[in-house]
Nucleic acid binder design. Structure first.
Lengths: 135, 135
DNA sequence: TGACAACGAGCGTTATAACAATCATCGTTA
DNA sequence: TAACGATGATTGTTATAACGCTCGTTGTCA
């Protein structure tokens, strides 16, 4: 049963590669897009990701170098460095999202709406340890 | 719905870490255990894995250095390098497998047998591209 | 207010993954 | 059998992930 799952992750990775994005970076784009104009600090971004990233600094370094985000230290709370999307980052998100949606539709093409609903509800039964994933 | 999936992969990774194994290495152990005493060549192992590994040589290098596998060039077919489990590798597999099974049981603790069967059959509906995963 | 614990970010280092190119071996065919 | 294409393995290089430690900043409490 892990087959479909692992293949799906792999296909998502391949899909995002032409955009120069990893799945994690794509998720960061979505998180920052959802956040307000004031942006989010690295730790907050990390806590909203599905799996922990032990080196948020350099992940954001790379995204900044690609022009997707900008960071600046919060003048009020000088230990926070707030990251927010650039226009380029927002465009990248708008560009990649249709392809991601298409892949999802393709993968679940053979599902009826009822089957999709059943799958969702079943996956919610998967047991997670204390204090697990948010978002 | 990716939540449970990604968390599950992450937990598996963490579970295997104390054994010094990555999920891929664990799968290689299982594949080699399933193969006969004559072992398998690197390409064949790669083709049985769920996601492609572009550098089988060094993956097996690491496993050989850990004493889990041995390799030797097939005298008949000198381009093949056959890898097979050592006793240590087999013991490692026997040691890790109960923990893996326990994690699976824990994750699906809240599923009835019927729900598990439903989940399996639904996941088989996920659309895969041509010539996809084996095993 | 001075000390201290908590927290956020940054950085050094090592290990692994990913990509491309090269070399050796084999099967096939002219 | 000589040449060629296909296949398997290896290696060089670069990029990313992972781990641990350090440093600056903040809040708290004696």
């Amino acid at each position: 049963m892990g087959r479909a799952v692992i293949r799906g992750m792999y296909r998502m990775e391949q899909l995002l590669k032409p955009y120069g994005l990893t799945p994690t970076q794509y998720n960061v784009l979505r998180i920052l897009n959802g956040a307000g104009a004031e942006g989010l600090c690295g730790t907050e971004i990390g806590s909203r990701l599905l799996s922990p990233v032990p080196d948020m600094t350099r992940l954001l370094d790379r995204m900044a170098e690609a022009g997707l985000v900008v960071r600046e230290r919060d003048p009020k709370q000088r230990r926070f460095v707030r990251a927010r999307l650039t226009d380029t980052g927002r465009e990248m998100l708008l560009e990649a999202t249709p392809a991601v949606d298409t892949l999802h539709r393709e993968q679940f093409r053979r599902f009826s709406p009822e089957q999709l609903a059943t799958l969702r509800s079943l996956l919610e039964l998967v047991d997670e340890p204390e204090g697990a994933a948010r978002t």
